[in-house]
Simulated scan of single mutants.
Amino acid sequence: MIRLMLVDDHAVLRDGLKNILDLESDIKVVGEAVSGMDALSKVPDLMPDVILMDINIPDKNGIEVTGILKREYPAIKILMLTMFDHDEYFMSAIREGADGYLLKDAPSQHVIEAIRSVARGQSVIAPSMTKKFLNFQQKPAEAPKEKKDELLTEREREVLLCLVQGMNNKEIAQELFISDKTVKIHVSKIFKKLDVKSRSQVVIYAVQNQLVPLP
């Protein structure tokens, strides 16, 4: 059962989402928050598996709250659900550790599947944001001063490619003929070496710095 928390200041949207999600046997809405501070105060008691987070909320915005929660509770998955399709919001959310980024015009079934995907450890990016994401390949970021990618072993590069292709740990283990535990170790080392906090973040870093072929 996926324990889900809704963070949005619009009651109609929260109620609509809750009504839809209540029909799913594997998802349970365990709490709601109407502002950044409200979310931060409730998370320690609710400890959800996934948080569906709006960006434009009172007090602290959703991106700020995501950064705080990812530092304090890195195991909690955070899926942004917003009306903003601007590059700066998208990249800021990913930098703060968001596990996915969806737009509010997404069909409800896409939102449901995205919740399941991030709960499994996969990253989710709205289709309309994918072009912006892949454009980083044509406009690569300045090379990191420490050449972080050179620290990766050959096996870690193979795991990184699997991450970019959207595989979860079990799928990576099957692809590379290694154990789930070994995959977790490699993923943890990749995150540390590349100084990233989430799968979405490591995927964007890899594409932006041309560490792997385009998926």
Rank of each mutant, 00 (worst) to 15 (best):
L23Q: 10
L23E: 07
E24H: 00
S25M: 00
S25W: 01
S25Y: 03
S25F: 00
D26F: 00
I27S: 02
I27T: 01
I27D: 09
I27H: 02
K28F: 01
K28V: 11
K28T: 13
V29W: 06
V29K: 10
V30N: 01
V30E: 05
G31F: 03
G31Y: 01
G31T: 03
G31L: 06
G31C: 10
G31I: 08
E32N: 11
E32F: 01
E32Q: 14
A33E: 06
A33W: 04
A33N: 05
V34I: 12
S35E: 03
S35W: 09
G36S: 04
G36R: 01
G36V: 04
G36W: 05
M37P: 00
D38M: 04
D38I: 02
D38G: 06
A39S: 14
A39K: 08
L40F: 12
L40R: 05
L40D: 12
S41I: 09
S41N: 14
K42M: 08
V43N: 12
V43I: 15
V43R: 09
P44D: 15
D45E: 15
D45T: 14
D45V: 12
D45A: 15
L46P: 12
L46I: 15
M47N: 13
M47H: 13
D49H: 15
D49K: 13
D49R: 13
D49W: 11
D49Q: 13
V50S: 12
I51S: 08
I51P: 10
L52E: 11
L52D: 08
M53W: 06
I55R: 09
I55C: 10
I55N: 09
I55P: 03
N56H: 11
N56R: 01
P58W: 13
D59G: 02
D59T: 13
D59V: 06
D59E: 14
K60P: 00
N61G: 04
N61K: 06
G62N: 08
G62W: 06
I63Y: 00
I63R: 02
E64S: 04
E64P: 01
V65A: 07
V65T: 08
V65P: 01
T66M: 00
G67F: 02
I68R: 01
L69T: 02
L69C: 03
L69N: 04
R71P: 00
R71H: 10
R71M: 11
R71Q: 14
E72Q: 14
E72K: 13
E72L: 10
E72N: 13
Y73A: 05
Y73D: 06
Y73K: 09
Y73M: 10
P74V: 08
P74G: 07
A75E: 15
A75D: 15
A75M: 08
A75N: 14
A75L: 10
A75K: 14
I76P: 02
I76K: 08
I76R: 06
K77H: 09
K77S: 11
L79R: 11
L79P: 07
L79Q: 07
L79H: 08
L79F: 07
M80H: 04
M80F: 07
M80V: 15
L81S: 03
L81C: 08
T82V: 11
M83S: 14
M83C: 11
M83A: 15
F84L: 15
F84Q: 15
F84H: 15
F84C: 09
